[in-house]
Simulated assay, not measured.
Amino acid sequence: MKARLAASAALALGLALGASGCSMITYQATTEKYDASDGVSVNIGDLDLRNILVVSDDGEDGTLVMTVVNRGERDATLGVQFGEGGGDVVEVDVEAGQTLVLGSKDEDEVVLEGIDAEVGGVLPMFFQYADAEGVEKLVPVLDSRLSEYSHLAP
């Protein structure tokens, strides 16, 4: 009787470990954060920048595309510096608690002139907001062949 009870307990323990043990030693890809679109993302203070990319057909001038979410209680001015060695700076104003979608039909285009970037490559960009620590990102430069970006090339 004791042997059957011990065998049943050992079998139950073996089944439990066999059914769940792989998650103890296997890498879990679902725990990794990633950008699920063509662009990159960054958080700076109260500003969340999502799906940042540049659309350019010639690599000289490009349209900045991104979504900026201001989670703060004050209006914010985001400084965007682009190019090697800290080229030009573009400022983008975002009202408190609002979302701004650059590249949408509701917003004016933000054209970056003289980006000198290879289409299909990346453009170094530096994002700064108020006294929050700025962040540099390598932003993809895409062309207008994709239908969702066809109206965005300058």
Score class of each variant (00 low, 15 high):
L138K: 11
Q81T: 15
S8V: 13
L47I: 15
A96E: 09
L78N: 04
E113L: 07
K137A: 12
G97V: 06
V68N: 01
E109K: 13
V89C: 01
M125R: 01
D106I: 00
L112I: 02
S20L: 11
Y149C: 06
L102N: 00
E109L: 10
L138V: 04
D106R: 08
Q28F: 00
G14I: 05
V141L: 07
T63N: 10
P140L: 04
T63A: 12
C22T: 13
L152E: 02
L5K: 09
L13A: 12
G62V: 00
E107F: 01
G97S: 08
K105I: 11
I25P: 03
M125F: 02
D108S: 13
Q81Y: 02
A153N: 13
S150K: 13
K137V: 14
V90I: 14
L123N: 02
L123V: 04
D88I: 05
T30H: 14
N70F: 08
D48G: 11
F126W: 08
R71P: 02
D106C: 02
L49S: 01
G39F: 00
V139F: 03
V65F: 04
E148Y: 15
Y129V: 04
T30L: 10
A132L: 03
V110F: 01
Q128K: 13
D116Q: 10
A153W: 04
V119C: 05
K33F: 11
G86E: 11
R145W: 07
E32W: 11
G45W: 06
A7M: 12
K2D: 11
V94K: 01
L15A: 12
D46A: 15
T99S: 08
V42P: 00
G87K: 08
D38S: 14
R71H: 14
S23F: 07
V141A: 08
A130T: 10
G114M: 03
N51M: 04
R71K: 12
V135T: 14
G39Y: 03
Y149W: 14
S147I: 13
D143P: 08
A16F: 12
E113V: 05
N43G: 13
E136Q: 15
A7K: 06
Y149A: 09
L11N: 00
L112R: 01
V101F: 01
G79R: 09
G97T: 09
E109V: 04
D131V: 10
E136F: 00
E32N: 12
E109C: 00
